[in-house]
């Protein structure tokens, strides 16, 4: 870990301004990912802006019948929130499928969205990694890639977004609200929040320098059976090989987003028209452009079969 300076922000705008004022500054909330990365010098911020004192820790109804989730609502609290459990059980289920109880107690809503990939080469500072060290190359392309992306990757990066919460939020059409140093706000649909790696894999999201997440909003509840199924090599405390976040209505229509397959939660809205026709039809459309590697090609049939399971469960 490199030495860094530290301050506590008093308002979201001040937090954003502080992050702009010092080059290579980072916000810190739960620190469940950032601190690990700092210890390994994968992240080496010169300045930390602690946002834990900003409040932003409530879940409140919005005027249009949805929910506004404060950026600092802890994962445990969000999963247990009565409104979330009643109206957005998909989100609750995705949250409790992630990490461990201890981590969820600390991890925040905004921080969860910003967690970095778990690619083994990102984590090993001796290895080339364009995400960690732009221009150094991608070791995963010639290395082990069983956990990595099967779609949406590039010649520069085949990392995945490792989270669960964002996959559910993608299916729920969540919107990320931010504020910048000038006080300007913007609302970023979850579909656009995470980037594909392209030739800039070091940028996980579309956030600008210093831009601070204040909340995530959910539109009015959409009902339906909401199922999050996460497949992994052990039963808990592991990152997804594939996860499926699905909302299925009695008539067989619905939505589905996939985790563990791409640099962002993967949802293809056009494919959802095939939902009544079953998992194979949906998967064929969702993964039409897939480019798996030999050791992760199994994720494609796994994604289809997991969706088939979820569709079967929705009928029960």
């Amino acid at each position: 870990m490199r030495a860094f300076s530290y301050e506590r922000a008093t308002t979201p705008e001040a937090a954003a301004a502080a992050a702009v004022a010092t080059p290579n500054a980072k916000f810190i909330a739960g620190g469940t990912n950032l601190l690990d990365l700092m210890k390994l010098e994968i992240e080496a911020p010169t300045h930390l802006v602690d946002v834990n004192g900003l409040g932003l820790d409530t879940v409140e109804p919005t005027d249009d019948g949805g929910l506004r989730i404060g950026a600092l609502v802890r994962n445990t609290d969000l999963a247990a929130d009565a409104q979330v459990r009643r109206d957005y059980p998909l989100l609750s289920r995705a949250l409790v499928a992630g990490a461990s109880g201890q981590l969820r107690n600390k991890a925040t809503t905004a921080g969860n969205l910003l967690q970095r990939t778990r690619c083994p080469y990102f984590y090993d500072t001796n290895m080339p990694c364009n995400k960690r060290n732009p221009g150094s190359g991608c070791a995963a392309l010639t290395g082990v890639s069983r956990q990595l992306a099967v779609i949406g990757g590039s010649d520069a990066c085949i990392a995945t977004h490792p989270g669960d919460m964002a996959v559910a939020m993608r299916a729920l059409d969540a919107v990320v609200e931010t504020v910048d140093a000038e006080g300007a706000t913007r609302a970023i649909p979850m579909a656009e929040f995470h980037r594909l790696p392209g030739d800039e894999p070091e940028r996980d999201t579309v956030l600008n320098t210093g831009e601070f997440i204040t909340a995530v909003t959910l539109p009015a509840p959409v009902g339906g059976r909401q199922i999050y199924h996460k497949v992994r090599d052990r039963a808990s405390y592991a990152f997804a090989l594939v996860s499926v976040a699905a909302i299925i209505h009695p008539d067989g229509t619905g939505r589905v987003a996939f985790g563990g397959v791409a640099h962002k939660p993967w949802r293809v809205e056009e494919a959802e028209a095939e939902m009544p026709n079953g998992a194979r039809a949906v998967a064929a459309r969702v993964f039409a452009d897939a480019a798996p590697r030999p050791d992760n090609a199994f994720k494609l049939p796994l994604a289809e079969r997991t969706l088939a399971l979820v569709l079967a469960e929705a009928k029960e």
Partner: peptide, 21 residues
């Protein structure tokens, strides 16, 4: 997991080398 080109075990931490929970 053997990275055969680089001749090392790539999943060298407890997040990537999974043991039962």
């Amino acid at each position: 997991e053997v990275d055969s080109g680089r001749a090392f075990f790539a999943n060298h931490d407890l997040a990537s080398y999974e043991v039962p929970v």
